[in-house]
Design a protein around this nucleic acid. Structure first.
Lengths: 224, 224
DNA sequence: CACTAAACGGACCGACTGGTCCGCTTGTGC
DNA sequence: GCACAAGCGGACCAGTCGGTCCGTTTAGTG
């Protein structure tokens, strides 16, 4: 959990209001930790009451730190997305484009497999928090680096994009989902199959519409 | 809608209770039609009240025809699954194993794309109605015919199964889901990619555990 | 047409949810 | 150690849901 991104915490700085109290900081930490666990296990429909209970605080405390349930959920998912973007950035150091792209996808799918709420949120953009959208845009950007390198090295078909790869993560997870409890590693089978499909072999894919927005257009990026 | 599968309707036959009333038959029809629409649009969380309203009946009528909401939902999804199994059976007549398998998958994904509740139910086996499980088992059986033929003709890798193909349908749908409203045909892109991955090209896929149950073991089939 | 059992519909119930409010507690600066 | 603002927690509220119940309507029968 790299929770620097955390809350709209101490907006200190300007007029010298008192600093944030220590118990408040501690509770927000417990809250984020508990919420991450509960959302991962139970999905986005997990109740605030359960999160508060696991954190060992009252319900009121939840809403003092996060305006709404969606706000709390977004904070957590954004952290996950940013973490994944960090993985992509780190893997971009590696020379072997093929294996680094594969490793990235394996990391991503594994994350999705272990976190129900993450799956639901990234698979259904209706929960369209702006911060989340830009986090996804950052992720797509990082992945695009991996993809471009792989295309240059000729190890995947040239019409693939970072968006494709990110979307495919959720697809692979969903494929294995119905048998997940019985066969927790089944996603590897389908990841392999999808990766094999990503290798260049002649016929171009049905068109994904040309990226309409510029590089800074966050909202349009996700639909690029 | 092939609603012969419909309800636990007139259990007539034995002791000559009066025949089912015509308005009851009519209302059940309207109910199934309305529920299919509403579930397709809004997913499994659509409310009974909305379904009753669209059918033009009262809420009480819903529960006289279907014991619970899950019962109604299962009835509808089972019809869809059986319909898809019928498509598979019909396509098995065709000589070209490659194109018939592709056509089946395209039909399946398109159905998933247009029906939210169908997606949710088949992607999450927790709604484990027994009738639904056997319907899925029947579907997998039919698809296995297509798959076996394709393997024999050497057009797909030999370690694929009917279960794989059925699971992949939901995976392809999920891949396109986040951009679905903006690009309704995007699923074709990912179906093509997955189908390319299904073609034989050397390395075997990570193991899918050997089918543990016999052919009649419905429950184990889905996890075969 | 009269009679009855079946079907109907919507008021009602209990459970649960996200979110609010306010009296009480506690950390912090002086 | 005092004062007080900030933080706290849980009773509470309004809304929604699946499901039940029962007074009323209606389809079928002789």
């Amino acid at each position: 959990m790299n929770s620097t991104t955390t809350g709209r915490a101490a907006q200190s700085g300007s007029s010298g209001h008192r600093a944030e109290r220590s118990d408040a900081v501690r509770n927000r930490g417990k809250l984020l930790e508990a919420a991450a666990e509960v959302f991962a296990e139970r999905g986005t429909e997990a109740s605030i009451a359960e999160i508060a209970e696991r954190a060992g605080v009252g319900k009121g405390t939840v809403f003092r730190h996060f305006a709404t349930k969606e706000d709390l959920l977004a904070s957590i998912v954004i952290d996950l997305v940013d973490g994944l973007a960090g993985t992509a950035r780190r893997l971009a150091q590696d020379d072997d484009a093929s294996s680094s792209l594969y490793d990235f996808m394996a990391t991503g799918v594994e994350l999705l497999v272990r976190d129900r709420a993450f799956c639901e949120v990234v698979g259904e953009p209706s929960l369209a928090d702006d911060r989340l959208r830009s986090a996804i845009a950052r992720l797509v950007d990082q992945v695009q680096v991996l993809v471009s390198r792989a295309v240059e090295q000729g190890v995947i078909r040239p019409d693939l994009t970072g968006t494709d790869v990110v979307l495919l993560l959720a697809g692979v997870q969903q494929t294995a989902q119905p048998l997940l409890t019985a066969h927790p590693d089944l996603w590897r089978r389908y990841l392999r199959l999808v990766v094999d499909g990503m290798r260049f072999n002649g016929d171009p894919l049905p068109a994904l519409p040309a990226p309409p927005g510029g590089l800074t257009d966050d909202l349009e990026r996700w639909r690029a």
